[in-house]
Design a protein around this nucleic acid. Sequence first.
DNA 1: TTGTAGGCGTTATCAC
DNA 2: GTGATAACGCCTACAA
Lengths: 339, 339
Amino acid sequence: MKNQALPTLADVAKRAKVSTATVSRCLNFPDQVSASTRDRVMSAITELGYTPNFGARVLAAKRTNTIGAIIPTMENAIFARGLQAFQEELKYHGFTLLVASSSYREEIEEEQIHKLVSRGADGLLLIGAHRSDKIYKFLEQRNIPVVLSWVFRPDLNQYSVGFDNCEAMKELTNKIIDLGHKNIAVISASMHNNDRAYQRVLGIKSALKDANIEEQSLTIYETSYGIDEGAEAFKKVIKTKTRPTVILCGNDVLAAGAMRQAKKMGIRIPQDISITGFDDLQLASIVSPSLTTVHVPHRKMGKDAAQILVNLVTGRKVKEKSIKLETTLCIRESLGPVK
Amino acid sequence: MKNQALPTLADVAKRAKVSTATVSRCLNFPDQVSASTRDRVMSAITELGYTPNFGARVLAAKRTNTIGAIIPTMENAIFARGLQAFQEELKYHGFTLLVASSSYREEIEEEQIHKLVSRGADGLLLIGAHRSDKIYKFLEQRNIPVVLSWVFRPDLNQYSVGFDNCEAMKELTNKIIDLGHKNIAVISASMHNNDRAYQRVLGIKSALKDANIEEQSLTIYETSYGIDEGAEAFKKVIKTKTRPTVILCGNDVLAAGAMRQAKKMGIRIPQDISITGFDDLQLASIVSPSLTTVHVPHRKMGKDAAQILVNLVTGRKVKEKSIKLETTLCIRESLGPVK
DNA sequence: TTGTAGGCGTTATCAC
DNA sequence: GTGATAACGCCTACAA
């Protein structure tokens, strides 16, 4: 009852009075078959409501036309949007996307990588570069092409398409220093296993150094992803001895939380304190005051990553190992000069 | 070169000096195997870096422990968040999630349904109820359990877990009428193939009727999903002869767009015009004025849907065909009394 | 252009 | 507890 037999290739073949090989060809290489038999086969297929069995097909053909992607979380709009573009491009090339999420946790990501590979993913899109050598070796041994995104890391022996997190944040920090800010606080995502967050903070430090501002005056607060987390962090950060005149947040969501909390506490932005984000989510231009942030070319990143992966998987050459995309500063109302 | 042979069950068996059957048992029913041989097999597995071949497994076992989900778009946070909960619950039960998106288009959804089924999805999560009989028949014939979410539709012969879109919107509209509003405009998602949008507008009409307000005074503007679309719609709607005193938006994103445009045009919210949304995305409480909206229990919906699907797929009984979840009104600053 | 037949890596049913 | 072995549904040389 549960498994009433589904039609198979053989059923179609019988009905169309041809061999299974011919049916298979109709599906995979239609022009190797004469028009008349093809018609006969095709109508047999629709009459029977036949759908090829994916498992069998994979087993026999050894490729799946499937690309896997692992993102930290679907709840973060920036990944979702990049992935949408990635998927559209894959589809255009006849590939299917398999998504998994890691909840920002390294061991879960490894688990998901194994799962996607065992499901026959022909290639993988991963976010960021921080992961164990072991897992990179595993993928190499399995001959599974990997593209890292959200980072530009020519220093690593991996394909990557993304932007320089360090440089982007440094640029923003320079701007902030120009405005006279010296007491700077940072609300960052956990840097431990997140090289994007780490690099961003690195960018801040580098800018400070260039400006001869001592690192001592830099308060860094690490927290996890979320609006409430941003708000909570703001509470903490605001009470450091020398109150910061600006808070650089590692992403827009943390910044939105910080802004919410500031308002709640009657602290005016940017008059009393400036706040900046990173990502340029839609919400950045909607909140008021509008949020100063760094625009990330998520759609282009997704599309480029898809193209590279398709090329790698189909055995074509890929010129550059790493593609660098530009970010742009979005100076909006939430950043003002220090008084 | 491309496909250096991966270790198979047979390789493991040889190395552990047992039969393939035993290795298979170690993997699937460990306690049917003696501890000593199990240890031997397990170490052989790690030494070889063996991973089971998914395709072969599916072919032989006829089930995939995979549930498919098709959402309109990953870019809409509300779906992404519901899906996250859905996925967590599935994982807890040992199932894997396969996601696809339809771009709000019926024919693409059908295509994706076929794809997921051919990939061996044991069950399917779909959003809303609007789709052809043909596709429902297809799924029934294939014996694939389906759960609809985002809607509560006891009138249909399908499992569903969600809320009553009509009732929820009616409740909000009643509140609005209480505040004295009579000139009402609606910015809705396209209703053509979207029963959630359709039902929401139905709720508005129903409330008007109950209050003896003639439908003539109701302006409905349909548009597609997006902030910019909401802004554009606002421009149009605001210039109807009798300018509305309130605009009900079909979702928070459209509402955010409308608010942005209102500000741009110097129209004050809620003094000059009230605006409401639907979904209660995080942005609803962050924008200012904060957005009056309807809270949707997305996480519970995802979790419940996962549980039902797991039960159906594993052949267990499911008591109720439709589960109704409650929505809650979130009255915030963007809604005021009519002057 | 079409057909034959072997094999892909597992699972599961038997015996032993 | 363990081992043979027959499916599972499709692809793809190789032949015709």
